[in-house]
């Protein structure tokens, strides 16, 4: 664990030098404790690091560091499984809503059915959220369907689009520009004030994609 100065009131805690699921899960346990810590005003988690911001008038680097080390000790007794949620995402996989489904199949010498089967056959870990509110960077996609980003991003990707970039997968929470390979669409809202914290997905969640038919997609409120 390494501490770096991020700004006058922020510390960056780095856990590891590569993206690694075990490291991410250790980091996540610390994050859950930091979220509840009154000394800390803001916690942001990414693949291998956490940024914490404290109130400069109420605390200082020394006190915050000491507290982080204490909480880190506590994480040793925490189990990841108890903390993490599993979220099932229904997806209508089809060339009708998956503009790059053919490309992903072709580049990997697979059939469209195989791509769908491989993508929906495992659960993914949410490593980080960024780029857009609620845009979850999930991994890892099976190398058999890993596909590089488009050469130039699309001007508009439709909300709910499920996409792949290399070995990562994500869902566009709202219409936006984007360069990931679109393979399907979910009827679920990714952002809503009805959710506890506005975003359906949070770092540390495990996500499973469930293939659905067009009829089911429309019934669940999906739009073509």
């Amino acid at each position: 664990m390494k501490f770096s100065i991020a700004s006058v009131d922020s510390i960056l805690i780095t856990f590891c030098s590569e993206i690694n699921i075990n490291c991410a899960k250790e980091l996540y346990k610390l994050y859950t404790l930091l979220k509840k810590e009154p000394l800390i005003k803001e916690v942001v988690i990414s693949y291998s690091s956490i940024l914490i911001r404290f109130d400069i008038l109420k605390s200082d680097f020394k006190e915050v560091k000491k507290r982080v080390l204490e909480l880190y000790k506590e994480t040793k007794e925490l189990s990841f499984k108890k903390k993490s949620k599993v979220i099932k995402i229904p997806v209508y996989y089809s060339i009708e809503v998956g503009a790059d489904l053919k490309r992903v199949a072709k580049l990997n010498s697979l059939s469209i059915e195989e791509v769908i089967a491989i993508h929906s056959n495992k659960s993914y870990y949410v490593y980080a959220i960024g780029f857009l509110p609620g845009f979850a960077y999930m991994g890892e996609v099976d190398r058999k369907i890993a596909t590089p980003r488009l050469d130039s991003p699309r001007k508009e990707v439709i909300k709910g689009s499920v996409a792949i970039a290399n070995t990562q997968t994500s869902i566009y929470p709202k219409n936006s520009a984007g360069g990931w390979n679109i393979i399907g669409r979910t009827p679920l809202e990714l952002l809503s004030f009805n959710y506890d914290r506005y975003s359906l997905l949070e770092v540390g969640d495990m996500v499973e994609f469930i293939p659905i038919t067009k009829k089911e997609f429309l019934k669940l409120g999906g739009k073509i």
Binding site: T14, I19, V44, S48, S49, L51, G130
Partner: peptide, 26 residues
Amino acid sequence: ISNPIAFGAIQITKSGEPIVLLKEHQ
């Protein structure tokens, strides 16, 4: 590896442009 951004952070892009990140930073 992408990491979290603090208010005021100075990024150096591949072409050497400094970017100071302010209130609506990613």
